[in-house]
């Protein structure tokens, strides 16, 4: 039999109503339901549904981001009742727009989407040289390196960055995903990336697959 309190948490999360969700999470805790159970079976389960709905086009990006925001607020309520292990990230991502390219709208959108899916994201900004990416992978112990480019002329820098990662002997411990308007699957394969995402929603799905 489904737990109706957790079902309500899931539905309220999906509706994006922050006040209602916080109230509900508090009440659910008061009922004696463990915080870890509320997190996993209420909130994370809700975000999984949100992800699916985004993929089918039922939910729009601002709605997904709203759900992510209310989820964070709800997690803050749960945190005092959770162990450190319970709130570990889905994965750690280092992301940036490659050297020579100053565009960041698409990258920022991917960041928001990744964070909403539970990833710990380290944004290196724009015009990032290969060495900086390499250092960040080491420093942040990244699971995924996400490279963005908008200009056709800067896509070559994606290859240069991947080559730099290979040279630093980090390639085996980090998955690399690429994206941006001029990037296609064929290009991703050619430069040796592990995956390519055509949009922000797909980027989350890809990142989840890569860290699995």
């Amino acid at each position: 039999m489904p737990d109706f309190s957790l079902l309500a948490v899931t539905e309220t999360l999906i509706s994006g109503e922050e006040k209602e969700l916080i109230e509900l999470v508090k009440n659910t805790l008061d009922q004696g339901i463990p915080a870890k159970k509320i997190l996993d079976e209420g909130l994370i389960h809700g975000m999984d549904i949100v992800g699916e709905r985004m993929e089918t086009g039922e939910m729009f990006i601002p709605e997904v981001l709203r759900c992510a925001k209310v989820m964070s607020a709800a997690v803050e309520i749960l945190k005092p009742f959770l162990g450190e292990k319970d709130i570990s990230a889905t994965g750690r991502v280092v992301i940036g727009t490659v050297k020579g390219d100053l565009h960041d709208i698409g990258k920022n959108l991917v960041i928001m989407m990744l964070e909403s899916a539970g990833f710990e994201v380290h944004d290196l900004g724009v015009d990032v040289p290969p060495d900086t990416f390499v250092s960040a992978i080491k420093e942040k112990d990244a699971d995924v390196l996400a490279l963005s480019a908008l200009l056709t002329t800067t896509t070559n820098m994606m290859k240069a960055t991947i080559d730099a990662v290979k040279e630093s002997a980090l390639r085996d411990r980090v998955k690399i995903m690429v994206g941006g308007a001029p990037v296609k699957q064929e290009f991703a394969d050619k430069i040796g990336a592990d995956g390519y995402a055509p949009d922000a929603g797909s980027a989350v799905k890809l990142a989840k697959t890569l860290v699995r």
């Binding site: 994006g16 729009f60 990006i61 601002p62 709605e63 981001l65 709203r66 925001k69 709208i105 920022n108 959108l109 928001m112």
Partner: peptide, 14 residues
């Protein structure tokens, strides 16, 4: 900055 996460965009995104 960005407008993607504002309440206004959320209200009108449909």
């Amino acid at each position: 900055g960005e407008f993607l996460t504002t309440d206004h965009t959320y209200r009108h995104c449909r």
